[in-house]
């Protein structure tokens, strides 16, 4: 009899603890920030209200203008104080080119169009509508802004690199060493510091920010501006049916990187 009572109390205690713990956890998951990261609406229809900034990249235009991609990268890295360490291990990049078959990873595609093989394609942060990096970050150092831009707070980032593991596009870079330092030959990693934008400290993660600092003063992203003459890149509000990106998306066949992952990338490609 006595033993039964003890067993019952033990069981009841465990059940109570598990019940309280899990329901609290569940509710806090559903509250506040969880919504912003898309946890609550995962599997439901995406919200079409509000601004969602996005980009369309026309790959053919970059074939016609061979040096355009490099010009875009140069201006981006220059204004954002992106360091050049000169080796792939420490590499930091916001905007870069990779071979077509790497950007759009092909597992089984046979005899793909010859001209696409090895073609350099611009890659950058996809500013996903449902970003896994924002979900992963333990300090909200990376967050989704009201306009859809996935931003970074370099002063809050603790450098755990959970976001790098979470990003399925390899869009995030880590400052493995001091970006404001110089190599053994006395060459500064940042050739010329732009005082308009903060340079980072070592030990934090960074990535493309859709030129949020330029958007704030009514400009468009620097790469889009560079590519404007060639009409190779388009930028604007995806939720606004009258915006230029919306028009391009309606008229052209476009693809996204790894759409099956449910991240809802805001960068589209015309092949």
């Amino acid at each position: 009899m006595k033993k039964d009572r003890r067993d019952f109390l033990k069981l009841a205690g465990c059940a109570a603890v598990a019940g309280v713990g899990s329901s609290t956890a569940f509710h806090s998951l559903l509250r506040g920030e969880a919504e912003a990261a898309g946890l609550k609406r995962a599997g439901t229809k995406k919200d079409k209200s509000g601004t969602r900034l996005g980009m369309v990249i026309d790959i053919q235009k970059f074939i016609d203008n061979r040096d355009l991609a490099q010009r875009c990268i140069r201006v981006c890295h220059q204004i954002h104080n992106v360091p050049d360490f000169g080796n792939p291990k420490d590499e930091i990049k916001w905007l870069w080119t990779d071979r077509f078959e790497h950007v759009f990873v092909k597992d089984t595609h046979y005899r793909q169009a010859q001209h696409l093989q090895g073609m350099p394609v611009l890659s950058l942060c996809n500013h996903c509508d449902n970003p896994p990096c924002v979900r992963a970050c333990p300090t909200k150092a990376t967050f989704k802004k009201d306009d859809g831009v996935v931003g970074m707070d370099y002063h809050r980032c603790i450098g755990c690199r959970f976001c790098m593991a979470a990003c399925p596009y390899g869009a995030r870079s880590f400052n493995w060493r001091d970006p404001r330092g110089m190599d053994e030959h006395g060459r500064s990693f940042i050739s010329e510091i732009n005082p308009e934008y903060p340079a980072r400290t070592m030990g934090v993660v960074e990535k493309c920010n859709f030129c949020t600092e330029r958007l704030a003063v009514g400009k468009i992203p620097a790469c889009v501006e560079e590519a404007a003459a060639a009409e190779a890149m388009f930028f604007g509000d995806l939720n606004d049916p009258d915006s230029e990106v919306s028009r391009v998306l309606r008229e052209k066949f476009t693809i996204q990187r790894r759409p099956s992952l449910g991240t809802y990338p805001s960068v589209f490609y015309i092949i």
Binding site: E33, A34, A136, P138, T139, R156, C160
Partner: peptide, 24 residues
């Protein structure tokens, strides 16, 4: 040892983020 900015480790407490598994 793995943190890039170990002095900021307490940010996990200062800005609690229940959606992050690292917080839990």
């Amino acid at each position: 040892a793995d943190l890039g900015q170990p002095m900021r480790a307490l940010n996990v407490l200062l800005y609690p983020t229940p959606q992050s598994m690292l917080f839990w």
